[in-house]
Every structure is written in structure tokens, then in C-alpha cells.
């Protein structure tokens, strides 16, 4: 889920970069040297998990997990996502420097929305509630990210309207898979290590 280099118009790139800088400033303020290792090692785990391909019918899709990132890291999602994307740009040539801002917004804003909407229900007493919260967090993360990509494309010019539609459509199956896997991860963490979901890091 990246906006490629050289596609989006310059004002959109600039606005994305400004928003990413602001979000990172908030996130970095919430992170002190005490919890830096926790944030960092968990982010590395997310980085590796995002390389995992999950089968859907005849094809496969890779996980994004930005909903889960939001639940675990809260506002610190912003710098964590920024660094993850920078690593992808340098190591795998996915995305690049000029789109770093917009892509950070695309991933991190849904993460924070999920954090604000679902972190309470995920900690509820009932497993069913937590599972639903987990599914919604996973699905919302993808849906919002796809919607943001579509929106950024539309801001760049009307000619992108069909591309934006196609992009959004392509993400519906991924949305469902991501929701299911996120729900299972949440249930697993509740059983084995509930303090991870308790806001210990953010």
C-alpha cells in the first residue's frame, strides 16, 4: 500500500510531508529513552510481519498490520511507521524520499484512528468484544489507508479518479483477511501477554 514516486502532485507531497513531521513530533514527545527499546524492537517485529504473505484463494497478500500498530503504540505509531517506510525505501526500493511524508500519513493516521476507536473494546472483559474490536481495527486500518491513497490521488488531479476506484476496490479482500488475522493476534496476546495491550508502551 504505497503511493509510488513521481505520481502524486507536488502540493500533495508537501502537505503530506508537513503532516508527517507534525505527527512524528507528537509521537516522539510521547517516547522517552526508557521505552525506546520497546518501541523499536516491536517495530522491527512489525517490519518483519509486514513481509509475511497470507494466502487468499489463488493469490496471496502481505499483511500491513497498521491497525495493530496503532493499538500497541498509540501516537508513537507515527515515528515507527516513518522509520519502517524509510527502511523499506532504502532496503527494498519500495516508495522513496519524496513520498515518505504521504505514505507515513497513509499508514499512521489509520493506526491512530484505530487506537482511539478500539483500544478500549480490545481490553474489555469479553473475548468476543475483543475479537470484534480486533477485526475492526485490522479492517479499518486497511480501509482508511486505501481511502487516504485514493484521496491523495484525487487531490493530484481528476484523471486519477478511476485509478483511485480500482485501488480502493483491490483492498477489500485484503481488508477482510487483515481483520481476521488481527482479531486472532489480539485474542492470542490477551491470553499470553495482556500487558502488551494495556498501554504499557505508548
Amino acid at each position: 500500500m504505497h503511493i509510488s514516486e513521481g505520481v502524486v502532485a507536488a502540493p500533495v507531497l508537501a502537505a503530506g510531508a508537513a503532516a508527517a513531521v507534525a505527527g512524528c513530533a507528537v509521537g516522539l514527545r510521547k517516547m522517552d529513552y526508557q521505552n525506546t527499546p520497546k518501541v523499536a524492537v516491536l517495530s522491527s517485529a512489525f517490519f518483519v510481519a509486514s513481509l509475511v504473505h497470507i494466502p487468499i484463494g489463488p493469490t496471496s497478500a502481505h499483511l500491513v498490520l497498521n491497525g495493530l500498530i496503532g493499538i500497541l503504540l498509540g501516537w508513537i505509531s507515527f515515528p515507527a511507521v516513518l522509520v519502517g517506510l524509510l527502511l523499506q525505501a532504502i532496503l527494498f526500493q519500495f516508495g522513496g524520499i519524496t513520498t515518505l511524508g504521504v505514505n507515513t500519513v497513509v499508514m499512521a493516521v489509520p493506526a491512530i484512528v484505530c487506537y482511539l476507536l478500539y483500544s478500549r473494546i480490545i481490553r474489555s472483559r469479553y473475548d468476543a468484544g475483543a475479537a470484534i474490536g480486533g477485526f475492526l481495527a485490522g479492517a479499518t486500518g486497511i480501509l482508511l489507508a486505501g481511502a487516504l491513497v485514493a484521496l491523495f490521488l484525487l487531490f493530484s488531479g481528476e484523471q486519477f479518479i478511476n485509478v483511485a476506484r480500482l485501488f480502493l476496490l483491490a483492498h477489500f479482500p485484503v481488508m477482510v483477511i487483515e481483520g481476521i488475522v488481527t482479531a486472532f493476534i489480539i485474542l492470542f496476546l490477551r491470553k499470553i501477554k495482556p500487558e502488551l495491550l494495556g498501554g504499557d508502551i505508548r
Binding site: Q34, P37, K38, A40, V41, L42, S44, A45, V48, A49, V52, I54, P55, L63, L65, L72, I177, I180, V181, T182, A183, F184, I185, L187, F188, L189, I192, K193, L196
Partner: peptide, 25 residues
Amino acid sequence: HAYRTYGSIIGTLMIRAYERSEQIH
């Protein structure tokens, strides 16, 4: 079953990361 397994694998990865980070700290 496959999705649940992936969920557990990734959950385990998160927990290992968390515990490792405590050692690092």
C-alpha cells in the same frame, strides 16, 4: 485454521520482541 495460526505466529513474534526489548533495556 491457517489465519489463526498466522495470528499466533505473529502474536508470538510480538511477545518475543517485547521480552527481548526488556533485556536490551
